[in-house]
């Protein structure tokens, strides 16, 4: 087991994170949720950047305080906020990485920088959002880490750049003994990359499925007000009021197919599900 989180608890005032998950070797696991859902709190907890209020986190079978420097060399990280000092240039970061990681491949890193048109002599603060996002991912992948922990690595990137980075991640997984934990609020990034997906909303885990079958779990019902009044609301998961009626999520599609064939039932996609959850309310 590469990563195991059991009953993790972290409270910030009204926000409560309550999380359990596992990440197996050779797998890419995605965490999807809206901004403020708790993704970064989860990642910071895993990385021991914040103190947790309960539960346990194990990386490579060890709790965070037992991780050796060698273990930490096997972890590559991208944070949603934060990287090397923005006063540094890539040229100045290279000797730092060389002295931090035994497996840092300087030539390969320089080649990748050239490929992504990242100048070695420009301060990070003068780079575009896209350039610094690419740099952060390249740095995380530059030392052959067994585990990549990537919090919103594609944030601020255009479609082309996102595609390039996602391709790089697929390539990174080729040796077979590597794992990635990645978060995003852009579902399409994760749908095609991940083996399994977790959905997070207000600190709670609302879904964990294989990426291929994730949308088979949920059905989206589109109902008029009259239809909504007639249905068994116990079978609804989330409800969002619309101008003309209701959009609802159900986990029991078969029940509605059998009992309410007149109600429109769509497979939907992750973005639609997230929108109803975010803007609607629990049924």
């Amino acid at each position: 087991m590469i990563l195991k989180i059991k009953d993790l608890k972290k409270d910030y005032g009204d926000f409560h994170l309550n999380w359990s998950m596992e990440l197996q070797e050779g797998m890419v696991t995605g965490i999807i949720g809206a901004n403020g859902a708790g993704k970064s709190t989860l990642f910071k907890s895993v990385l021991d950047l914040i103190h947790i209020d309960g539960g346990s986190i194990e990386i490579f079978g060890k709790t965070c305080d037992k991780l050796t420097m060698k273990d930490k060399e096997d972890i590559g990280v991208v944070l949603a906020e934060g990287g090397f000092s923005t006063y540094l240039t890539i040229g100045k970061i290279i000797p730092v990485m060389r002295n931090m990681y035994h497996a840092f491949n300087q030539d390969d890193f320089k080649k990748k920088c050239e490929q992504f048109q990242l100048p070695l002599d420009k301060q990070i603060k003068d780079m575009s959002t896209g350039m610094s996002a690419k740099l952060n991912v390249l740095l995380a992948m530059s030392h052959g880490a067994k585990l990549l922990i990537l919090d919103e690595p594609t944030a601020g990137l255009d479609v082309l750049a996102r595609g390039e980075l996602l391709d790089m991640m697929r390539e990174y997984m080729e040796p077979g003994n590597r794992s990635i934990l990645i978060s995003s609020h852009i579902s399409s990034d994760l749908e095609n990359l991940c083996d399994d997906l977790y959905m997070i909303h207000k600190g709670e885990q609302i879904l964990h499925e294989d990426a291929d079958t994730v949308m088979d779990t949920f059905g989206i019902l589109k109902m008029t007000e009259d239809q909504y009044r007639q249905v068994d609301t116990k079978k609804l998961y989330y409800v969002k009021k619309e101008g003309y009626g209701y959009h609802c999520i159900t986990r029991d599609k078969q029940f509605f197919i059998d009992n309410y064939p007149q109600i429109i039932l769509e497979k939907g996609n992750i973005d639609e599900v997230l929108t109803i959850i975010e803007r609607g309310k629990r049924a």
Partner: peptide, 13 residues
Amino acid sequence: VDHSIAYIMTLPV
């Protein structure tokens, strides 16, 4: 500056 310290703590230190 720019939460760099958080990133530093994810390095082998």
